[in-house]
Amino acid sequence: MNRAFTKILAIFWKDLLNEFRTKEIIVSVLVFVLLVLVIFNFAFDTGTGASDTVASGILWVALTFGGVIGLNRTFAIEKENSRLEGLMLCPVDRSVIYWGKLAGIFTFMLVIAVVITPVFLALFNLPIFLPRLALIIILALLGFSAVGTLFSALAVNTRSRDIMLPVLLLPVVVPVIVSAVKATGPVLAGMPWGEISTWLQIMVAFDIIYLVIATLVFEYVIEE
């Protein structure tokens, strides 16, 4: 167990180091997500402020689209330099590779969310300090990355892989998106815990279910 953890950390560290040196994923996705927010402002003519439901929808569409682009990049990089083969030659269990990649992807998405959410809150004139929103973001992004890591490893070996990932991923993460949007609305409006607890529970359940399933089936996705 402890040794598996060290191996996961090693893969995670490799991805972090690579990102730190190339800045390929986080910067481009950040710019993209910011652009989505700007476009939505024009699309909905939000003016000085949007209603809580519209605002939470905008945030989650932006994060979802950004997430898809980021996911596509992470495995495309591995593919381009045949690094996926190298990773598969490692004397580790396939599930270790899954958890290592998941840790990296989840961290990238968190960094993007940490940067973009305050910008979003400021742009739409919403209260800036929302600790409960952080919880929602963590739970939603974990579920999103759990399925996303599995599917992007799969999509990278198909033709037209850029479109394959969202086509596969978005229907499956519908519960996460619905729950995140429904929980964010009341948080933005400053409503009590009771309004959001059910949605948090759904996300926790989704995260656990898909972390387990993805760990089990990941070996079939990257075997050669």
């Binding site: 799969l154 070996n157 198909t158 279910i209 993805a214």
Partner: peptide
């Protein structure tokens, strides 16, 4: 769209499992 048919079979089997498990969760959430 898989690059070869054996891959396509494996990938679609994974989706057949992941997708079906999603159905009750989607229903419950919606």
């Amino acid at each position: 769209l898989a690059t070869d048919s054996a891959r396509g079979a494996r990938y679609s089997a994974v989706i057949g499992i992941v997708g079906f498990i999603d159905v009750p969760i989607v229903f419950f959430t919606v």
